[in-house]
Amino acid sequence: MICDEAQKIKVPTAMVTKAAKAQKADFKIACTGTPVENSLVDLWCLFDFIQENLMGSLSEFNKEYRRPIEKKDDEDNAIIDELRQLIEPQVLRRMKHDVAELPAKHEINDCKNIEISTLQRTLYKQVSNDYRSLSEQGHKGVMLKALHDMRMICAHPFQEKATIKDSPKAEWLINTLETIKQKNEKVIIFTEFRAIQVFLKRLLLERFGLNVTTVNGDSNTNSRVGLTRQGIIDKFQETNGFNVIILSTVAVGFGVNIQKANHVIHYTRSWNPAKEDQATDRAYRIGQDKEVFVYYPSIAADDFETFEIKLDKLLSSKRSLADDMLKPNVELTQELIQSIY
């Protein structure tokens, strides 16, 4: 039994995990580019599928390995080495640069300092003041709502009279796409938010005359109902010249190939850098014959750190650990969320 995209069986209590483990097979292989996405429980779950009880029960694994390693105690290197030796006979790990000759990949950094607009600043301050007022009154969940609102304000201020000048990230996008259009190249825009997807689709129709395809959780996966997601993407790739497709990081972050695109724009950021890198790898994979350019446009202010700047710093620090599968590229904890605010 071979499982591709095996990180989907990382949650011990999930139905897909239980279904995979219920299959009777003499030999099992789990293929994944991100064996540890959130915590070392992901690793335990994969190995419990491959060879049950290799790492003991989940409670035993948590006590002996996960907690000491994730707490980053001084002595955790010895525990990490012990865990490496335990799984080494079962692991064949190859990085992309080990097995494929690909063109260069470039991260464009000059888009990480897009100046906040006056309207965005006003809305941002209002959200901050509302958060302080509601939190002092003991309202629950106000921090997550405030962060979501700040995130959306940075992406685009949804106000009735807002113009493109009030949305500097959208203005940056138009200018960037104009440059890419002159090169006759293709673009993937990633955002998981439906409101942003709809806004961008309308914007690109108005500015470029493109009836852009959006692929998200609503898109068909059953070919009997209509084009599959890969079918929709293949149609996008077969179109000659400049074109843009909008994808959900969550719904289409893995499992599809879009090598005809060589510009990847993360219009809004994922909480998890591993998922972001998976999304980028829809274009940066075997079969890509052009240099790939990756953009993380971020709204910034001179007098304070915006949500997007703080999130970028946190994701960058976590991404530096990405090559070590035993040092989890974790999603943001409550403490990290508080540090963003």
Rank of each mutant, 00 (worst) to 15 (best):
S135P: 12
E88H: 10
I114E: 00
I188E: 06
Q7T: 11
V91D: 04
D149L: 04
K21D: 10
A20C: 13
S39E: 15
L336G: 13
Q137R: 14
T122S: 08
F190G: 12
A283E: 02
V91L: 05
K235F: 10
W172S: 04
R229V: 07
V256P: 11
I50D: 02
A300W: 07
A162V: 05
N240R: 07
Q90K: 06
K235N: 14
W44G: 01
R202K: 14
G217Y: 00
S219R: 01
V244S: 02
Q51M: 07
Q288Y: 03
N257H: 11
S320Q: 11
F49A: 02
G253H: 04
K161W: 12
T249M: 07
L119A: 04
S219M: 00
P35E: 01
I245M: 02
E52V: 12
E171Q: 15
L40D: 08
P68N: 07
N38H: 07
Q90V: 08
T13M: 15
S57Q: 06
P68H: 01
R269N: 11
H156W: 13
I245E: 01
Q23A: 15
K96C: 03
T118W: 04
T221V: 14
D81P: 09
G253Q: 05
V252Q: 13
Q120C: 12
I80Y: 03
P35F: 06
Y284V: 03
G56K: 04
I340C: 01
K260W: 11
L86C: 03
R269Y: 15
L83D: 04
D98M: 01
F27C: 11
E160Q: 11
S316H: 11
A300T: 09
T32H: 11
Q51D: 06
L119Y: 04
I246F: 00
K18W: 09
I69M: 06
M15I: 15
Y284W: 02
Q237W: 15
D289I: 15
K327S: 15
D26V: 14
I286M: 12
L40T: 03
Y124C: 00
M150G: 09
L43N: 10
E308N: 03
E136A: 10
T213W: 03
K201E: 08
I309S: 01
S316L: 10
L326G: 06
Q259V: 03
V36T: 10
P273A: 00
L177F: 09
G253S: 05
T213M: 08
N262K: 00
C31Q: 12
Y341A: 11
W271H: 09
T13G: 10
E88P: 09
T214C: 02
K105N: 05
R269P: 08
Q159P: 10
Y296K: 02
C154W: 07
L173W: 03
P157F: 07
T214D: 02
E305G: 14
N329T: 13
I69D: 03
V256F: 10
S248N: 03
G241F: 04
T213Q: 08
P168Q: 01
H97E: 06
D74A: 05
E192P: 08
E101N: 03
K260E: 13
K72S: 03
T122N: 08
T249H: 01
F61C: 02
I50S: 03
R67Y: 10
S167M: 14
V99C: 05
T239Q: 07
K327D: 08
D302L: 14
Q51K: 13
K112E: 14
N77G: 08
V225N: 13
P89F: 01
A261Q: 02
L86K: 05
Q90R: 11
A6D: 12
E82L: 06
A104Y: 02
D324S: 06
I265L: 01
N329V: 14
